[in-house]
Nucleic acid binder design. Sequence first.
RNA 1: GUCCGGUUCGUCUAGGGGUUAGGACACCGCCCUUUCACGGCGGCAACACGGGUUCAAAUCCCGUACCGGAUACCA
Length: 512
Amino acid sequence: MSDVRVRFAPSPTGYLHIGSARTALFNYLYARHTGGKFLLRIEDTDLARSTDESTRSILEGLAWLGFAPDEEIIFQSNNADKHREAARRLLAEGKAYRDFTPKEAPKDANVKDAIKERARAQGDEKHMRDNPYRDLSSDESDVRAAAGEPFAIRLKVPVEGRTAFNDQVYGIQERDYADTEDLVLLRSDGHPLYNLAVVCDDIEMGITHVIRGQDHLTNTHKQILIYEALGVTPPTFAHLPLIMAPNKGKLSKRKHGEVVSMTTYRDAGFLADAFRNFLALLGWSASEEREIYSLEELIEKFSLEGIHRSNAVFNFHPDDPRKWTDDKAIWMNAEYIRSMSLEGLLPHVKAELKAAKLWRDEYEESREQLHERTSASLEIGYKEWFEYTVNLIRQRFFTLKDFSAQGRAYFSEDFDFDPAAIAKNLTKFPELKEWLPELAERFESMEFFFEDIIEEVVKAFAEEKGTKLGVIMNGARTLLTGVAVGPSMLAVFEVIGKERSIMRLKSQIAWN
RNA sequence: GUCCGGUUCGUCUAGGGGUUAGGACACCGCCCUUUCACGGCGGCAACACGGGUUCAAAUCCCGUACCGGAUACCA
């Protein structure tokens, strides 16, 4: 046990972004590794942009990844009074002052650019301490406030000196006070601002380690100033490198769409274990040549020292359907699907088949159970068949979706034929139109339908027709499964079963 | 502009004075095989640049370039 307390503090202005998800992951891993607590705080103080829908979506994403907070979720907006209280205290202590400068008209869409422009225009001439109200006497300030004149409250940053902290990732960070403005604590409408709110809440929640994106590096200096004014020792900080788009630019919802949303991965048939594993390796490594880690192993190996300083690219190709997201994430998911325990995979396959309306309850009834219930005596129970089939077809699957898409023909009579498979395996060999139904007839006379005996029959058939075995097999594969890829065709025949195999080989619908 | 950070294969990364600069993904080739996106074997491919320090620099120092972040009465 330790007294480490970390928090993940998203603002609900959209879905759970991949970068935020990784921040949550690192906080979670750190908490678990140290035996501390992982907390969640929703920073919903931006009334204009925060939505309940976003909060739900973020919570959903976190739940999917398995990061349950150890204490009740804090909603920052509920603490506004405390934030105002803190600002007033600082004002009373002379560590902050009222700024009566009229509020500027709200900027338009390009706030970011406008700010940049203004800053550029300012050049290296900095006037961080030239606010005319900074040194207004408290009497006069009180009088004007009492008269109802609107004001914002700004922190009175000392003239001489610097803020410094030892970042656990980036090392010693120092910043001259001259580079930090007298930041606004409370807006003229009484609304507390981000830096104040964060500091107050982190203090109240007893946060010991702040692990967040590197984009907060300069905020940290401002927050340290607030901690100092409040007379509280700041927590330890660890800033994370950012996750960038393929062009090394910013990864954004607006530009990159749902490829950055966590729910996309859940809905696309990713396993949370696999995606979490992938995320962990973006900006962190255990300094060993290995990439598959269970959650337990990540918790055990995780350390702040293993976090990198350079940004990582989330590599995807919007124009290539097969690489719509990072190659490695796809590979990782496939790796999990094919090598995790069948027992662990089954529930996921069940959920996927249910969603696709392909699930049948018999898939959970074993041969013995069926016998007990109906006294029917099958060669093999549905449960055994289902598990054998899933195990067989998972080898070439990338996502859970594949079980209901590519694998549809194993669970339903209603499946589509891939035009490319038809072209490659059927229309190229017109004789197959006659041959395949003929093969079906051979099957009809078979007493047993097992791999080795099927092999004998098909081989003899191919020989008789004077064609390559592959031509027959691949034609049959297309008719039986609708696709051109899959496991050994002998196993496919067996798993599809004699009756269905015969039916599909005779069917002419793929030919039309 | 200013402040802060970063820079090893296309991507994720190991390595932090002496290495044939290692692994993974992707890509390519070969093998297996009835096809294949499984598997096996192999290949392509990187220390941003310029100066120093040193017997020796990817590794330490300085500079340059480039990239990123921040610079709000947003979070």
